[in-house]
Structures are given as structure tokens and as C-alpha cells.
Write a protein that binds this DNA or RNA. Structure first.
Lengths: 170, 170
DNA sequence: CGGAGATCGTTGCGCGCGCAACGGAGTCCT
DNA sequence: AGGACTCCGTTGCGCGCGCAACGATCTCCG
């Protein structure tokens, strides 16, 4: 009974898969701890990064939810927290009375810059600096053959709010 | 001002890092959905797998917490859920009146076998089958150069319960 | 033996987040 | 104009999980 699609993972496959999980878990935990020193979660960080990169440093919540791995409701509450801490402000969106614009404050800019240095250093220590140029490039090529879908199944154009959902990679 | 340790991530580094995050997020979401069809979370699955592999298919909760990415309190509640669904039983641990043994029931065994097929197929589709043997081996070698620490900083032998914590990779 | 300290499982609390549903507002089509 | 969809941000609810603290128990050592 030669090859054909197996129904078990080979030891090599299993070992690689486990190394993948292990590496991700360890790195993320460390990065999370690092950001905690700046009083930020990883999601906070992602959102603030989107804001610094945005034109005029302002974005609609729904755009944030598309750019980051969070639903609209998650964004609502996260932004509320950032606002309480004075890192962002919410102003009514010009030309759309439903929505608002989330804008980065000076304090927010300072915070994300400081956190960004920490975060960048962490990624280098835990990830980038451990791989040489060739390894890095091969890793990228390999990873890009794995799934990178933004969300679950696409949405049929049904009724109300239903839809493919917000969470896409960050 | 030639090389020296930079303070920014190069575009190549950033792209690889992002591919890493993206791949992990997409794959995990899919695997989670697959397991939901068996009414299990990823943590449920991990715990059940530990049990099938254990001698006599029974383990102490504290051993589960060491084997899996969960604290003792997480294990308590997760096992309570599994017990409610009849997948495990808890019996007093012989020789240690503090603790118990979590044992897999027939239903639990059946469930983990079915879920295991689904899960294995998912990992193959999303991960293993997308890489050829050489790629897989190189990926494993690369990933094993990244952190794989079980927990945060090691614990000084202080007082009471404090300690490096339970969560180790799963 | 007895006491100090460590370990086990549990529990109260809080956080982060998704899902579903809502009212208000925009858009499109007749 | 007006009705039907669609989209926006918010909110109530529930889940999963860590942290810290507790009582019960085990262990080690004088």
C-alpha cells in the first residue's frame, strides 16, 4: 500500500507543527509582557500603530476593525479604554453623522513611539536576530504558502448586519 | 556608520514577521472552527490528547496544567466542563488526599478519536501538505531556533503558591 | 513528634473579546 | 419622495482564562 494521502501526521510533520505552536506562544507571551510595561495590550498596540500610519493620524472605527484582528464591538471598547487614558480622541466624522473619527493625541503618539521601540526590540531579540538573511527569506517564502485569509467564509448578501465578520490579520 | 545593531526592523524582517502572525492566526481560527463541530475547544482537545497518551489514560490536574498551556484554575474549570459532558471522570487520587485523578471515559475516548481525525486532517490541509519534505525540515530547524520557554521568568523559592506559573506550550 | 513551608484543587474577581441585536444614518431604486 | 437594504457604532450576554487567595494536605527537618 504505497503512499497515497495518509491519515496521520508523520513524526516530522508533528514535530514541525509543535515547534510552530511553541515558538508562537513563547514569543507572543514575551511581547505581551513587554507591552504591559507601557500599559498596553497587543491589540492596543495594533490599533495605535494603524493610527500613526494613517493619513492625518485619524481613522474610522470600522476601518480599524478591518485593519486589525478585532470586531467592531471589540474596537468600540478598546477605543473607549484608549480614550479614558487620553491616548486617542473621538470626534464626529465629517459627512457621516453615524460615525466618528478616532484621532491620536500627543500623549498617544508619545506612547506608541516608546512602545514601538520596546516592541521592535522584542521582535528582533526573539525572532529576527535569531535568523540570518537567507533563513529569513526562506521562512517568509514558506510561511506565505500557508493560509492568510482575513476571515471565515465570505458572506452571502443576506439581510441586516450579517457578514464575513471583521477579524482579519494584524 | 556601517552595520551595527539596528533599531528598526528591515522590510524583509517585518514581512516575515507579519507572515508568521498571519499564518498562525488563519490556521488557528480554522482549526478552532473544525473542533467546534465536535463541541470542543482547542484547550479541550489538548487536555483530552494528554489523557489518551497517559498511562492508564489518567492524569492529575496539576500534570495536565504542566503539559498544556493552562493554569491550575483553568484546568479545574475545563475539566469540570468535560465531566459535565461525560468525557472524563474525576476520582480521588490514591495516596494523596488533596488531589484527584482525571480519567478518560469511553465517550471521551470516542470523542477524542473522532476529533483527532478532523484535527489531523486540518493540520495536513492547512500546514503539512503545503510543504514538501525539505521545506518542512528546514522550517522545523528554523523554528527551533526561536524561543520555546515553558513560562515566564523562573520562580525564586518564595512563600506560598507563587511560582513560575503553569502555562507551558501545548 | 511538631511546626514551617510547599503543593493541590478550588473559587471570586476582572479582563478581553466575539456574537447578536438595536437605533440611527446613509444609499439605491423605483 | 419613499421604501428597502445596507452600514455604523453601541450594548447585553456569555465564554475562556489568568491572578490571587484559601483550606486541606503533604513533606521535610529539627
Amino acid at each position: 500500500m504505497p503512499p497515497g494521502p495518509r491519515h496521520t501526521l508523520s513524526p516530522a510533520e508533528l514535530a514541525t507543527w509543535e515547534a510552530f505552536l511553541r515558538a508562537h506562544a513563547s514569543i507572543m507571551r514575551r511581547l505581551e509582557q513587554d507591552l504591559a510595561a507601557h500599559d498596553l495590550t497587543l491589540s492596543d498596540y495594533d490599533v495605535l500603530v494603524q493610527l500613526v500610519q494613517a493619513p492625518d493620524r485619524r481613522l474610522r472605527p470600522v476601518e480599524l476593525s478591518r485593519a486589525v484582528l478585532l470586531t467592531r464591538s471589540g474596537i468600540t471598547r478598546l477605543v473607549a479604554g484608549l480614550e479614558r487614558h487620553g491616548l486617542v480622541e473621538r470626534i464626529p466624522a465629517p459627512g457621516d453623522r453615524r460615525g466618528q473619527l478616532v484621532t491620536l493625541t500627543a500623549a498617544g503618539l508619545e506612547r506608541i513611539r516608546a512602545a514601538g521601540r520596546t516592541h521592535g526590540r522584542g521582535i528582533r531579540e526573539l525572532f529576527a536576530d535569531r535568523l540570518d538573511a537567507g533563513e529569513l527569506e526562506r521562512l517568509r517564502a514558506t510561511l506565505e504558502r500557508l493560509p492568510a485569509d482575513p476571515a471565515g467564509s465570505p458572506a452571502p448578501a443576506t439581510g441586516g448586519d450579517l457578514g464575513g465578520g471583521a477579524p482579519g490579520p494584524g
